[in-house]
């Protein structure tokens, strides 16, 4: 959890808005450090978290969260965290063993991926509404807060052949059930490539997906490199866009911050005020 980012977004684990759909996007920059922030944030806030970790193995996420002060293994044991390890599940679909019962979540990989992500959505839905997930815990297990879905990251789904339309439908359904019905939050990460000129014929590309997700979201964090090039002390800039009206009815302006990622966190500062410069 990055404290400076919490103050920028005006949230804290004790008080955060519910029913939010947050989009984290990175253009040619690696924005996964923000997913780690949100993961540790919501675990600290005692929410029931469903994490689709499609990019790296469980031990990677575990090691990073350890540095941020949260133990994923413990959260899994206490059933606060449901973790889908995309790599292992995907491998078991590519090379089916004979004796797998298997999680059907990634079964779209064996069939035509154009079929859609309905099974993945069912997996998400069942994991957040399992006992101990905000409803009465019959076996005395701990009560957790509102459900949260984190996805790292959606561009892997595009790489595996899923169409942008299917991903948009999946995010629509997640938003409808998690944000509106269950009053939880959804955070999704998407990486885009270099922006090309108007690609009119590209209905399936990540640009359309990005625009569709921005239309759906209520908070967008866009990470990109500095326009002036590579710098060792400032790793890039983050643009924070609020899309919904805030409580007092005013639109909030977009804000741009620069950031630097270090071992145990990331620091955010206004443009030009990096400690390396001042």
């Amino acid at each position: 959890m990055f404290t400076e980012l919490n103050s920028i977004l005006n949230t804290s684990p004790d008080s955060f808005t519910q029913g939010d759909f947050i989009l984290v996007s990175g253009r040619q920059s690696d924005a996964s450090f923000l997913i780690h922030h949100f993961l540790s944030f919501y675990l600290r806030a005692r929410c029931k978290v469903c994490f689709l970790g499609l990019v790296q193995s469980f031990s990677h996420y575990s090691a990073v969260c350890q540095r941020l002060g949260v133990s994923l293994a413990q959260a899994k044991e206490k059933r606060q965290l449901v973790f889908l390890e995309g790599l292992q599940e995907g491998l078991s679909v590519f090379i089916p063993q004979d004796d797998t019962t298997g999680n059907k979540a990634l079964s779209f990989l064996s069939r035509d991926p154009m079929v859609g992500l309905q099974n993945l959505y069912e997996f998400v839905r069942s994991s957040v509404s399992s006992p101990g997930g905000g409803e009465e815990g019959s076996d005395g297990s701990e009560q957790w807060g509102p459900p949260v879905l984190l996805v790292d990251d959606l561009s892997v789904l595009l790489s595996l052949g899923v169409s942008a339309r299917a991903v948009l439908d999946f995010s629509h359904y997640c938003r409808a059930s998690l944000c509106s019905q269950l009053q939880g939050n959804v955070v999704m990460l998407l990486h885009c490539e270099e922006e090309e000129e108007e690609d009119d014929g590209d209905d399936e590309g990540s640009e359309r997906l990005l625009k569709g997700l921005i239309h759906q979201c209520c908070l967008a964090l866009h990470v990109q490199g500095l326009p002036t090039g590579y710098c060792r002390d400032i790793h890039g800039q983050v643009e924070v866009c609020w899309r919904r009206r805030q409580g007092d009815g005013q639109h909030t302006q977009n804000k741009v911050f620069q950031y630097k990622v270090h071992d145990k966190g990331a620091s955010f500062f206004a443009r030009g005020t990096s400690s390396a410069v001042l």
């Binding site: 253009r27 920059s29 490199g225 326009p227 002036t228 400032i234 990096s274 410069v277």
Partner: peptide
């Protein structure tokens, strides 16, 4: 043409912020 994990190419020279 280098696009590293965190830095972009010099696409725009308009914003020399620091």
């Amino acid at each position: 043409m280098v696009g590293s994990a965190c830095g972009s190419g010099t696409s725009g020279n308009k914003h020399l912020d620091f």
